[in-house]
Simulated scan of single mutants.
Amino acid sequence: MEALNRHLFLLLNAPPDPQTMLLLLARFLADDVVVLAAALIAVLWVWGRHNGRSALVGAGCALLTAALINTVIGAIWQHPRPFMIGLGHQLIPHAADSSFPSDHATFMWTIGVSLLLRGSWPRLGWGMMAFGMGVAWARIYLGVHFPLDMAGALLVAATASLLVVPVRPLIDRLLTPAIVRLYEGAVRRLHLPAALFPLDRR
């Protein structure tokens, strides 16, 4: 398995002198897409209605579950990144920590799977899955992850999202209203403009 993992990595990893446009695309996908996705989720929270917010809270619960799973895996199994063993070409800086699974891909795919399971914003769910593939390719191309790290990220994302499904009624009935109240209370206390932070979106 490890031999196949390394072979696939070398097939996808960038050459020592990559094309400028491809390198820029990879760097954008590797880091910026996750930031943009988080910003989009924030916008959907502010402007979304109650059902949409419940879906986002569910996705947030899945993300917390996925982060916990990744942390446990990283603590019990330290898998070196390609550059830590002198394999391929590293084109972006990264800490020399465990590579498995990829946190960036886990983030994208957990949101995507969670929204698809919920049936809310299916286009956004599929978009997250597609951009997650882009993130996965980019981080391998730039030399900071193996293909197996991405397979692990997809498995963690699916597992975390499925674990949240049975508690969806509690999320809808208790957790989402509580978070919405906290959010709306903060908007009122901070006197944020109603045009940008509308309340009572049912």
Rank of each mutant, 00 (worst) to 15 (best):
D103Q: 11
H104P: 06
P122D: 06
G127W: 05
W126H: 12
P122N: 07
I140R: 03
A136N: 04
L91Q: 12
G88V: 12
L116C: 06
P122H: 06
A130Q: 01
P101E: 07
F100P: 10
T106G: 05
L124A: 14
L117N: 03
H89I: 14
L87D: 11
F131Q: 06
I111H: 00
G119S: 08
T106V: 10
A136C: 11
W126R: 10
G125E: 08
S114M: 07
F100A: 10
S120Y: 13
P122W: 08
R139E: 03
M129T: 04
F107H: 11
R123W: 15
S114T: 08
L115N: 02
S114Q: 05
G134H: 05
S99N: 09
S99R: 09
I140G: 04
S114P: 06
T106N: 02
G112F: 04
G119R: 05
H89E: 14
A96G: 10
F107L: 14
F107R: 02
D103W: 01
Q90L: 09
M108E: 11
A95Q: 14
L91W: 08
R139N: 03
G127F: 05
R118V: 05
A105W: 00
G125V: 10
T110P: 10
F100H: 09
G132K: 02
L115P: 03
M108R: 01
I92N: 08
S99F: 08
W121V: 01
G134P: 05
H104G: 09
A105F: 04
F131L: 15
G119Q: 09
H94Q: 11
M128F: 15
L87M: 14
P122F: 06
L117D: 03
I111D: 01
G119C: 09
A105E: 04
I140A: 09
W137K: 02
A130I: 15
S102C: 09
R123K: 14
R139I: 14
G88Q: 11
W126Q: 01
Q90F: 08
H89F: 13
M129W: 07
M133I: 14
M128A: 15
A138I: 05
L124T: 13
V113S: 00
A95Y: 11
R139Y: 06
L91R: 13
W126L: 13
I111P: 00
W121K: 00
T110Y: 07
M129E: 04
F100C: 10
M108W: 03
L115T: 05
G88L: 11
G132D: 02
W126I: 11
V113T: 06
R118I: 01
R123H: 12
W121E: 12
S120R: 13
M133S: 12
S114A: 15
A96W: 03
W126M: 08
S98Y: 06
G134Q: 04
P122S: 04
A105G: 05
A130E: 02
P101Q: 09
R139V: 14
A96L: 06
M129H: 00
I92H: 06
R139C: 04
H104C: 10
I140N: 10
W121Y: 13
I92K: 07
H89V: 15
L117S: 06
I140M: 14
A130D: 02
I111M: 11
T110F: 09
G132E: 02
A105K: 04
R139P: 03
M129C: 11
H94R: 05
F107V: 00
H94V: 01
A130S: 08
L117G: 13
L124W: 10
W137R: 02
